[in-house]
Structures are given as C-alpha cells and as structure tokens.
Amino acid sequence: MDWSRAIQNLPEHEPRPDLWDRIDADLRADAVIDRTLDDLPVFEPQDDAWEQIAGRLEKPVVRPLWPRSFRWIAAAAVVALVAGIWAVWQPVSDEKVTIAYATETVETEWAATPEPLPSSTDQKVETFINEQCAQQIVVCQKPEVKELKQQLRELSNRKMAVEQELLVFGNDPALVQAQIKIENERAEVTKELVRILRI
C-alpha cells in the first residue's frame, strides 16, 4: 500500500457553518476584556489596617532558637541514639558492654539571614564559558549558544529572586521546590553549554 499517496488523498471535511462566527465572537470578547482590564476598580483595606500593622511592628520578633530543619535533625539524632542504646543493650549474651562517648562542639557562625554565595562550581563554569567564548568567538556567535547563555542568565536572575524571597519567607515549601527546579534547569543548560563549547 502506498501510504504517502493515501495520506495525500485523505478527504477534507467542512467545519460547522457557524465556526467562524464563534471564533470572531471570541476574539472580539477577548479584545473587550483586555481593554477593560485597565479600568478595574481599586479597593480600600479596612480602616484600622495600619494600626494593626504598626502594633505588630512594635512587638519584638521571637525567632525559634533552632531552625525547623535543625529541629528535625536533632529529633532524628535522639531517635538514632535511643535505637542504638536499645540495640546494644539487647540481652543476647552475658558479655558486659561498656559504652563510651564523647561530645564534640562544632563552631558555627549563626547569621539571621545567611547571604547565599555563588558556589565555586558556578564561578568555575562561568569562567570556563567566558574563556571559551574569548577563544572561540565563532562558536559563541551560534544561535543555540546565544540562546543557552540567555537562558542561563534568566535562570540565574530567577535563582536570585527566589533566594531573596526565601530571605523573607523562610523555607516556604513552594519556594524551596521552585529553587530546586531552577537549580536543575541551570544544571541542564550549563551541561549543554559546556558540551557545545568543548566540541
């Protein structure tokens, strides 16, 4: 069977007679909506909103001693310790077991709002791309390289924006997910860019 000829000879069908009227009506309706979006009314918040905001600003901010993630780690450590002790003290033999332990204090610098720094890997990649582009000017003029570099810039801007929002909102799950997604996309774009520049 000659598929290409059969496909070329497939019959044509008529759409419903009023389809254009529907399309035209939708387009006109969208134009009316778009035009009117600029005239949407503005609303006033309740009268005492400022007094309530000012009252909250005067109260001192109570921050948890340990961030939530550290609390989970601490809880996990306690569970692990209890499980370990229970496992060691099982009466499986008459041997005497002596448990020795030591505590270690790790000096950490606690900052209220840690400033995210660009990782050394990011810096290395950026340096590599710049060096390659300086040496291989023609390659860097390719549309796909320009496109990838543009994507990388946009993703870096989005990354910074999310990091700034994280400073305000803390570890908001949606923001953390967005941050992970952006990092993954950056990694993909960077990988592709490096691959092209190495050819």
Partner: peptide, 16 residues
C-alpha cells in the same frame, strides 16, 4: 453551544 456576544463596552466594575 452558540456564539457568545459580549457587549462592545463593559465597565471595570462589571469585569471585576
């Protein structure tokens, strides 16, 4: 099931 006729002018309050 029919073409929808939106008026040519609507107010911002109506759209809101």
């Amino acid at each position: 099931d029919r073409p929808l006729e939106v008026p040519d002018f609507i107010t911002g309050a109506v759209l809101d």
